[in-house]
Amino acid sequence: MSWSPAELSIAEVRSGLSRLVNRVHVTGEITYVRDRGQRLAAIVPADVAEAFERAEDALDVAAGREALARIAAGEVPLPLIDETWVTSSTAPGADSASATA
Rank of each mutant, 00 (worst) to 15 (best):
E83R: 06
T87K: 09
A73N: 08
A46Q: 07
P5R: 02
G16L: 10
A41L: 15
L40M: 15
S18E: 11
E66Q: 14
E83K: 03
A46P: 11
A63C: 15
G64F: 06
A42N: 11
A101T: 14
S4N: 07
E66Y: 02
S9G: 15
M1I: 00
A46C: 05
P92A: 07
Q38G: 01
D95K: 01
P92E: 14
W85N: 01
R23E: 05
V44G: 01
A62H: 14
T31Q: 04
R36C: 10
L68R: 15
D57Q: 12
L8M: 10
D95H: 00
D47F: 12
S98C: 06
M1H: 09
I71T: 14
T90H: 06
V33G: 03
V86E: 09
G74A: 03
R36I: 08
N22P: 05
A58T: 07
A6V: 08
S4V: 13
T27Q: 13
V48N: 02
I10Q: 05
Q38D: 04
D82R: 04
V61I: 10
S15H: 10
G37I: 06
Y32S: 01
D95A: 07
E83L: 05
A73M: 08
L40K: 09
V21F: 04
T87G: 13
A91N: 03
M1D: 11
V21T: 07
G37F: 07
R14Y: 06
S96R: 09
R70A: 13
G64S: 15
T31D: 01
V44K: 09
A42F: 03
D47I: 13
V76T: 14
R14Q: 14
A62C: 11
L20A: 00
R19Y: 03
V26K: 08
E83N: 00
P92S: 08
F52P: 05
G64E: 13
R39S: 07
P92Q: 08
N22Y: 13
P77Q: 02
V48I: 06
P92Y: 02
R23T: 10
S88Y: 05
R39I: 04
V13G: 03
A72F: 08
E29F: 02
Q38R: 15
S18P: 15
V61P: 07
E75F: 07
R36H: 12
E50F: 03
E53T: 10
E12G: 02
V21K: 12
R14C: 02
S2C: 04
S15F: 07
D35Q: 11
R70Y: 00
L20P: 13
L80C: 01
S98N: 05
L17V: 12
V26A: 09
R34G: 00
V44H: 01
D47P: 13
E53K: 12
A91C: 14
A6I: 07
E66L: 15
P5H: 04
A69Q: 08
G37Q: 07
R54E: 03
R34I: 09
T84Q: 11
S89L: 15
F52D: 12
